[in-house]
């Protein structure tokens, strides 16, 4: 090959390689540069000193707390739901499937507005709740409701497809060996789907943590009550720019960790038929 470096065949091949390299590099740079820019705009000292800022602290605490609560609710309700949904056929199943997927394509602002129309002070259900002194909109509960609405499809879709893929022979065999349906679920179904379920949960947590549109519409932007990290970044645009950078970097780090976790967990396969 080295003897005839300018032969047309080699020439064409190296052109292909160069073209591919440019393409890969430009796509990667397009995606990575804005993220990298965040790190260039601050210094480690500035970053760590603004970490202790009460504005950052309260947003971080609120974001983590609400996302953890959202995640727990999604997993606790979503796992049995997805199991039942994948095991039984019932009329209107396709409609249910569509509603599960809808939040993925629905603009989050619309989701938040819809929640407000339903649960707001004068909303369809909200006005009755209001008669009992219960007000949901613009509270921390509203933050959690918005996160669940927007983030749950990530877990539900994953859990549903895992349960559908699992070879029924495992569960059937466990039943014939004397295990009750609940025992089968906890000792066979869950362990065999655990990797995928956790990766779905991690994605859900990430989506809840990054929730902005639905939250600002339905819960507002009240520091310490409904101001999560993405809302705090938005708020910092009008105030302290450095604070915005610090919170953004925190979110980037968390997102990165989530993607690494998902990649690792997705590499563990579900045994199926």
């Amino acid at each position: 090959m080295a003897r005839f470096p300018l032969q047309p065949e080699h020439y064409r091949r190296s052109l292909t390689y160069i073209g591919a390299a440019v393409l890969v590099a430009s796509v990667t740079l397009y995606l990575a540069l804005p993220v990298a820019a965040l790190f260039f705009r601050t210094t480690p000292e500035l970053f760590f000193s603004s970490l202790s800022d009460p504005y950052v602290r309260s947003a971080l605490y609120l974001s983590l707390a609400t996302s953890v609560v959202s995640l727990c609710i999604v997993v606790l309700v979503g796992t049995p739901f997805a199991y039942a949904h994948s095991r039984y056929t019932y009329p209107g199943k396709i409609v249910v499937d569509t509603f599960i997927d809808l939040p993925l394509v629905l603009p989050p602002a619309v989701a938040g507005f819809a929640l407000l129309v339903l649960y707001g002070r004068v909303g369809l259900i909200g006005k009755y709740l209001n008669m009992f002194g219960i007000s949901l909109a613009f509270t921390t509960v509203a933050v959690i409701m918005a996160q669940i609405f927007v983030a749950s499809p990530f877990y539900l879709r994953q859990a549903k497809s895992l349960f559908e893929q699992l070879d029924p022979a495992y569960e059937q065999t466990a039943r014939t060996l004397g295990a009750s349906p609940l025992r089968v679920f906890t000792t066979v179904t869950l362990p065999l789907t655990a990797g995928g379920l956790v990766s779905g949960a991690v994605m859900t947590f990430g989506r809840a943590l990054g929730e902005f549109g639905a939250t600002i519409m339905f819960a507002g932007n009240l520091p310490g009550v409904t101001q999560t990290m993405p809302l705090a970044v938005y708020g910092a645009m009008q105030g302290d720019f450095n604070i915005g950078i610090t919170i953004s970097i925190l979110l980037v780090i968390i997102s990165f960790a989530i993607m690494v976790a998902v990649r690792y967990l997705a590499s563990r396969k579900v045994p199926h038929a």
Partner: peptide, 12 residues
Amino acid sequence: GYVLQNSAAFPH
């Protein structure tokens, strides 16, 4: 005692 066709030894 039922041994299914594809044996189904629990992989985990």
